[in-house]
Amino acid sequence: MRNMRLKALVISLLMAVSFAPASAQCGIKNTAFKSGEFLYYDLFFNWKFIWVKVGTASMSTVTSRYGGQQAYRASLITRSNNKLDKFFTLRDTLLSYCATDLSPLYFRKGAREGDRYYVDEIWYTYPQGNCHMKQHRIENDGRHVWKQSEYQDCVYDMMSIFLRARNFDVSKYKVGDNIPMPVSDAKRLSNSWLKYQGKETFKMEGNNVKYRCLVFSFIEREDGKNHELLRFYVTDDANHIPVRLDMFLSFGSAKAFLRGYKGVKNPVTSRLN
């Protein structure tokens, strides 16, 4: 289960739905990115103590419309290469629509992981200030599973959580502080949070580029234990660009490193050379 949820980080049915405007209490002011931002990553896996490139990922954010209102459309595509395909095929496409205040509106994940294919969808509405989710899962055997959930607190998915986290004001946090971030897929809500790990200067793999970074861990509590699923490094500037992600799997570890970017909102002042 942990691996299935994690693959949503390193990574459509069209249905008409009506919804109320997103609740302001689930929003946050966006100062980190703008429409037209594109980020590119190389994926690596630790194979017998050697880091091997096993694929690529790309993330884009553009201004769009959803349900008659202006919104951000963010997508993440991960693709394994021939080296990994021999052992495990990874073809994930994640799509998220968020209001301009980054309240989530819709999420979809289509994933081929190994010999398994499934689709997750979530539609968000905000009746009486609550967070209501209509959830849809297409299982590998073709079964359609529907459910609805409603919570007093805000709930996110694996795409909208990244957009939100990039806009945190870290000056408010101390090293070790935990930030509750409940995340859901189409089947269940996780007891999860972000832990602020402090600042670190990171040297990019394969070149001499260094970044000053803020470091966060994504932690989930399952079976009575805390599991760090992901540690990510974002630039210590106004963009908060994810430049490195460490993914902890039960069968090994994987990493993603920023290869390039364009269309960023602010000067990348955290780059040291």
Results as ranks from 00 to 15, higher is better:
Lys86Glu: 06
Lys86Ala: 11
Arg91Lys: 10
Arg91Phe: 01
Asp92Ser: 12
Thr93Ile: 01
Leu95Glu: 09
Ser96Pro: 01
Ser96Phe: 00
Tyr97Leu: 08
Cys98Pro: 00
Cys98Ser: 13
Ala99Phe: 02
Ala99Asp: 12
Leu102Met: 06
Leu102Lys: 04
Ser103Leu: 07
Ser103Pro: 00
Ser103Asn: 11
Pro104Thr: 00
Tyr106Gly: 05
Arg108Cys: 07
Arg108Lys: 10
Arg108Leu: 04
Lys109Asp: 05
Lys109Tyr: 01
Gly110Thr: 03
Gly110Ile: 04
Ala111Met: 07
Ala111Trp: 00
Arg112Cys: 06
Arg112Tyr: 02
Glu113Lys: 06
Gly114Gln: 02
Gly114Arg: 10
Asp115Val: 10
Asp115Ala: 09
Arg116Val: 15
Tyr118His: 13
Val119Met: 11
Val119His: 08
Glu121Met: 10
Glu121Gln: 13
Ile122Trp: 10
Ile122Thr: 06
Trp123Phe: 15
Trp123Thr: 03
Trp123Cys: 12
Thr125Met: 12
Thr125Arg: 13
Thr125Trp: 06
Gln128Trp: 02
Gly129Met: 04
Cys131Met: 11
Cys131Asp: 01
Cys131Ala: 05
Cys131Gln: 03
His132Arg: 15
Met133Ile: 02
Lys134Trp: 15
Gln135Cys: 11
His136Ala: 11
Arg137Asn: 08
Arg137Leu: 10
Ile138Lys: 15
Ile138Met: 14
Glu139Ala: 14
Glu139Gly: 09
Glu139Asp: 13
Asn140Pro: 00
Asp141His: 06
Asp141Phe: 00
Gly142Ala: 15
Gly142Lys: 04
His144Pro: 04
Val145Thr: 04
Lys147Trp: 01
Lys147Leu: 12
Lys147Met: 11
Gln148Cys: 07
Gln148Trp: 01
Ser149Gln: 15
Tyr151Ala: 14
Tyr151Gly: 13
Gln152Cys: 03
Val155His: 01
Tyr156Asn: 15
Asp157Leu: 07
Ser160Cys: 06
Ile161Val: 15
Ile161Glu: 04
Phe162Leu: 09
Leu163Gly: 09
Asn167Phe: 10
Asn167Cys: 14
Phe168Met: 03
Asp169Asn: 15
Ser171Lys: 13
Lys172Phe: 05
Lys172Leu: 08
Tyr173Cys: 14
Lys174Trp: 08
Val175His: 01
Val175Glu: 09
Val175Lys: 14
Asp177Ala: 15
Asp177Ser: 15
Asp177His: 11
Asn178Ser: 08
Ile179Gly: 05
Ile179Thr: 02
Ile179Asn: 10
Ile179Ala: 08
Pro180Ser: 11
Pro180Phe: 07
Met181Ile: 13
Met181Gln: 10
Pro182Leu: 08
Pro182Asp: 03
Pro182Gly: 07
Asp185Ser: 13
Asp185Lys: 09
Asp185Arg: 11
Ala186His: 05
Lys187Gly: 05
Arg188Phe: 00
Leu189Cys: 09
Ser190Ile: 04
Ser190Val: 02
Ser192Asp: 03
Trp193Lys: 11
Leu194Gly: 05
Leu194Val: 07
Leu194Ser: 03
Lys195Asp: 04
Lys195Arg: 12
Tyr196His: 01
Gln197His: 01
Gly198Ile: 13
Gly198Arg: 03
